[in-house]
Every structure is written in structure tokens, then in C-alpha cells.
Simulated assay, not measured.
Amino acid sequence: MEVKIKLNGKTVVDDIPADMLLIDFVRAHGCKSVKRGCETSACGLCTVMLDDVPVLSCSTLVARADGRSVCTLEGLQAEASEFVGFIADQGAEQCGFCNPGFVMNTIALLRENPDPTDDEILAYLSGNLCRCSGYVGQLRGIRAFLDEKHGKEVERG
């Protein structure tokens, strides 16, 4: 079947098998930030934005994205660069495997709620699995980013 998808701002037309998953499609088109982690829709490593809503690409058929917009971390570098340094400063990127999923969900969170509480951050990121550092470093990094953005004194790294 033929699909037409706007991937990171560029129109991609491709002939795909009807059962192809979105994770395989975006990776085949050079989006290597999207990772396969659990194969059970439980880890968040495969998160992409489908029409600006975070979805798990490992459990989404490409056919659902036909005629729609898909954005991966490769397409959100400018927005992500604002806060990834804060996460790194907190030592939360130990192996880095889970970072793209965390970043994608943090972008979605901050678009939806520009000033979340710590509990709201943890709740939003609860679908992301980090095997190295857990969520404390990510929370500290996001909180430091938000504090600096709101003019509060922040101690970095």
C-alpha cells in the first residue's frame, strides 16, 4: 500500500506492507533516534509525535499515519536543545539509550503544560523506562530548565 507522510517536515511517499509498524518506517527513513526497547509498548523509547501528540511507534501501524505529520527527535532538534543540557548536567543520560524517548515526552509535556509541578512531570514521564538512572536525574534536569526559564537561580553541573 502507498502512504504519504510528512516526516520531520518533508513529504515522504512510500510503498509499504500493510502490517508495517511506524518504528520501522521512520528508522528506514533515517530517523535513528527512535529506538526499539521492549516490543511491548511499555518503555517509551519509540515515542514519536503523530500530529503533535506523542505515540508509541512500536505499536502504531504506518497506515494510521497516512496523510498525517510524524515528527521524531531529528525534526525537533532546536526545541530539544533548549533543555537537554540540563538533563545531561544532572547525570541523567548515562547510556543515552532512553534519552530520545524522554526528550520527546518532555517536549510534549512542556507544550501541554509550560509550568508543571514535579508530580506532573513524573506522571507524564512514567511511561519511559530508564534502566541506568531512573527518573530522579531527568526530573532534576527538567526542573532546573524550568526554573532558569522562569528566572530563578539555578546551579548547573
Rank of each mutant, 00 (worst) to 15 (best):
G141M: 03
M1V: 12
N128Y: 03
T47P: 06
D51E: 14
V12Q: 05
E2C: 05
G151T: 08
K35D: 08
L125M: 13
L21N: 05
G30C: 08
D52H: 13
C31L: 06
C132G: 03
A123K: 15
E39R: 14
E2T: 15
F25H: 03
Q77D: 02
R27W: 05
Q138G: 06
Y135V: 12
Q77T: 04
V55W: 01
A123D: 14
C98A: 11
S126Q: 13
E155H: 14
A65D: 00
L146E: 01
V62K: 02
K35E: 13
C95S: 11
D52I: 06
K152D: 01
N8V: 06
V136M: 04
G96F: 02
P17T: 13
A88E: 12
E93L: 15
I107K: 05
R64Q: 14
V136F: 08
I121T: 07
C95E: 10
V34S: 13
I121H: 00
D147P: 07
L110F: 00
P17D: 14
G141I: 01
V3C: 02
L109M: 11
G67L: 05
K6Q: 14
T47V: 09
C31K: 09
E120H: 01
D51M: 10
C71H: 14
A80H: 07
G44T: 05
T106R: 04
G91Q: 08
E112I: 00
Q94I: 04
T117R: 06
R68W: 08
D115K: 06
F145P: 03
F145V: 03
M104N: 13
V55M: 02
A92I: 13
L73S: 02
Q90W: 03
K4W: 02
S133I: 12
Q90E: 15
F97E: 00
D19A: 06
A108T: 11
G9V: 04
D147M: 09
R27M: 07
C130T: 08
E39V: 06
Y124H: 15
E2K: 15
N8L: 02
V55G: 00
I87A: 12
L122W: 02
G37T: 12
E148L: 12
A92W: 10
D89L: 11
Q90D: 07
V154F: 04
D147E: 15
V103E: 06
G75M: 04
L22V: 05
L73I: 13
